[in-house]
Computed example of a mutant assay.
Amino acid sequence: MFRCYLRASTTEQDAERAKTILEEFISDSPAEWYIENHTGTMLNRPILNQLLEDALPNDILLVESVDRLSRLSLDDWETLKSKINDKKLRLVVLDMPTTHQQIAKKGIESEIMYVINNMLIDLMATMARLDQQKRVERIRQGQERAKAQGKRIGGRGINEELHEKVKKRLAANNISVEDIAKLEGCGVATVYRIKKKY
């Protein structure tokens, strides 16, 4: 049984982006799908926890790439690996062809590849964690630079076009706030905020 895990960090991202290529890889084999929008830097993920709870010995945990499974700290990665090993899951990473041999899992060659794959997966998990740390650092530096230049940090910028349209409708004084919101495709609270501002 394939236990296919798909993850994206935020709800704005498409967690099912790689589902088609995983489906092609497993062909008609029996599979359960576990899809969630959750950061890979956290060990405690509801859907991943469900997968580990459902898994049976010798099931295959299939992921597109190691960073979909982990951007964890070293200690948390070791904990997750222990959980995977305790369940006797075979980890197959689509973009690491050497792990594909775990599907058949036969003979001494397979045992040797298991050891090699563990080292490679550890390396990829470390690289995913470092990539995440670099990304966070770049964002922090960008925010500090923007703040030093007097730019607003966080939140949405003002939609000037929407503000102008709402202002004109308010100035006409012949339509309700609720109708303005419907016509302009925004919330009533937004219209009230613009009304208060101007």
Rank of each mutant, 00 (worst) to 15 (best):
149 Q>W: 07
164 E>L: 12
144 E>D: 15
171 A>G: 05
159 N>Y: 08
160 E>L: 15
154 G>K: 02
171 A>K: 12
152 R>M: 15
174 N>T: 12
157 G>M: 06
183 L>F: 06
180 I>G: 01
189 A>R: 14
168 K>V: 02
154 G>L: 03
191 V>G: 01
183 L>G: 09
178 E>T: 12
149 Q>I: 00
153 I>M: 07
148 A>C: 06
151 K>C: 07
144 E>M: 15
156 R>S: 15
161 E>W: 05
174 N>D: 15
189 A>M: 12
166 V>K: 02
162 L>F: 00
177 V>C: 00
175 I>N: 07
185 G>A: 06
182 K>T: 10
162 L>A: 10
165 K>I: 08
150 G>R: 00
164 E>K: 10
166 V>S: 02
190 T>G: 00
167 K>G: 09
164 E>V: 09
154 G>I: 01
179 D>F: 02
167 K>H: 13
180 I>P: 00
182 K>Q: 08
158 I>E: 10
189 A>H: 11
166 V>Y: 05
157 G>E: 13
173 N>W: 06
145 R>K: 14
164 E>G: 04
170 L>C: 08
157 G>L: 10
144 E>Q: 15
177 V>S: 00
176 S>A: 06
144 E>H: 12
168 K>D: 03
169 R>N: 00
146 A>D: 13
163 H>T: 14
166 V>P: 02
187 G>L: 03
179 D>N: 08
175 I>R: 10
169 R>F: 04
145 R>C: 08
177 V>Y: 03
172 A>I: 02
148 A>H: 08
160 E>G: 02
187 G>A: 14
178 E>F: 05
172 A>T: 03
166 V>M: 06
156 R>E: 13
163 H>V: 14
179 D>H: 08
147 K>P: 04
162 L>K: 05
152 R>G: 11
153 I>C: 11
186 C>P: 06
178 E>C: 02
168 K>L: 07
181 A>K: 01
158 I>G: 00
164 E>P: 03
167 K>D: 09
166 V>W: 05
176 S>V: 07
147 K>L: 13
149 Q>G: 01
146 A>W: 10
166 V>F: 07
180 I>Q: 01
168 K>S: 04
179 D>Y: 07
175 I>M: 14
165 K>V: 09
167 K>S: 15
151 K>P: 04
